[in-house]
Design a protein around this nucleic acid. Structure first.
Lengths: 124, 124
DNA sequence: CGCATATTCAACCAAATGGTTGACCAAACC
DNA sequence: GGTTTGGTCAACCATTTGGTTGAATATGCG
């Protein structure tokens, strides 16, 4: 009974959104880009720099992320700035949490761990 | 500084796992299967029944879900039972939550809402 | 044994994905 | 004005994906 309700709830999600978001997240390059954008907004060229891949390929990835709503792009002058839009993950995240409570790792504790284990990375 | 640590944290995720899990979740048929398995374990034939698709196609979807660890399959007699394995979503869910706190919808409240709005579905 | 049921396998197909290269366009610089 | 810089577009390519069909493999049933 409860489970039936839950199944109904899941079926209510707009599949289209979830399709594009999950598909966008399925690529490691795109996930890495999103993680980079956590630090700050970035120009397309700078996003591409660490990857062993053509600028055109990165540009395509950015299109996919944009269509999924996971980033937004704004052109200022001749450079196009990419901005993380984490809210686009909300419905996907909530969908997954319907399967169980996945408590996020305690980030503060992780940072303290890193300070002990990897002091070299503390001020690079 | 904090953000750098956060980016490092994200890069520490095993990309391979996330690849297969997110890719598995990117298909609406597979998401529907997972939602169905919330209610109960199911035989392959029963999983396939509601879909307008060949049994072989469903069988392939189940292989993908199994490889991603999202379900497990156990053969008892001549029927193969599919069981939801929600723990496989944990790392993906935690990864997403690194981008923000996405609180799950209050399921109890949703159920009460349904009881009011959709009384017909209450005991079908 | 002989047949029905449950599921997978193999071959095939169309469309989507992730990448390349080279041409192109727009903004900035000297 | 000419050249560099930032980014996209278009055509192409190999691989993967999501589906089909028909044959094959077990297992259970009378």
């Amino acid at each position: 009974m409860v489970d039936q309700t839950r199944a109904l709830w899941f079926s209510g999600f707009m599949s289209n959104d979830l399709d594009t978001v999950f598909a966008a997240l399925a690529d490691p390059t795109r996930r890495a880009i999103l993680a980079m954008l956590l630090e700050d907004d970035m120009a397309v060229t700078d996003v591409a720099e660490p990857f062993d891949m053509s600028l055109a390929a990165i540009s395509k990835h950015l299109v996919i992320l944009t269509r999924a709503g996971l980033i937004s792009q704004e052109k200022r002058g001749r450079v196009k700035w990419c901005k993380l839009e984490p809210d686009a993950m909300r419905s996907a995240s909530v969908w997954m949490q319907g399967f169980g409570q996945f408590e996020p790792v305690n980030l503060d504790a992780f940072e303290r761990f890193l300070e002990v284990e990897l002091p070299a990375t503390k001020d690079s």
